[in-house]
Design a binder for these strands. Structure first.
Lengths: 106, 106
DNA sequence: TTTATTGTTCTACAATCATAGAACATTAAA
DNA sequence: TTTAATGTTCTATGATTGTAGAACAATAAA
């Protein structure tokens, strides 16, 4: 794989983003990413198989929630804060706060 | 049907709420409800069959997003603003704003 | 009491989804 | 060049989902 598809900011679709975030595993990943600048795929904490993780990361990326950067054999992830804030102002922060209040552990 | 189930405030679950809102038809219904105090089921604007509408309304109600009140043969819906704001502060407003900016028409 | 209104439930179905094992691709290290 | 590390893609499977027609339930109106 040479290039990874990332939808442009203007194409971010709210229902698609909501669906991507509605899975507990994916929501947890996004919360982890939100706490750091970048995270290696292998460093994401989740109790699923590698192939399942890969599927979730693809869902998040194609929804425009995350960005994946290739570096050697590793892939680094981050939340597309700027794009999400531009397209859906205040939404990401409210979501993270809601997740925090809802489940402080994760 | 005598009584309708509504999950208590403390049981509202973020992924479940996000999933309920991730369907375009349901998101549209919530936006309509947010613009008024209450809405009769039959007054909800959507291009789906009655049985499909009923299914969506059940999904929203069981996720804790809406409340349904029985009155004669009609059912009146409203968004559970207080409960949602208490459980997920700022989330509903951010969502509605995001939906508005994303799709001003609906 | 019969009829109309409102909306749900039942049933069915095609589509999507989360899951994971196995094989594979790519790059780095030995 | 071989081996190890990282993660994706392929394939399969059981579960959930959105859809709608048909039958039904409950209330109101004639």
């Amino acid at each position: 794989m040479r290039e990874l598809y990332h939808p442009p900011r203007e194409k971010l679709d709210l229902p698609t983003v909501l669906h991507a975030l509605s899975d507990p595993t994916r929501l947890s990943i996004v919360r982890q990413l939100a706490q750091t600048e970048e995270l290696c795929v292998g460093s994401c904490d989740a109790t699923v198989a590698k192939s399942t993780m890969s599927h979730h990361l693809k869902t998040l990326r194609e929804a425009g929630v995350t960005r994946t950067r290739l570096e050697g054999t590793q892939r680094f992830l981050c939340v597309r804060r700027d794009d999400l804030d531009a397209r859906f102002p205040g939404f990401l922060d409210a979501l993270l706060k809601a997740a925090e209040q809802s489940d402080p552990a994760n």
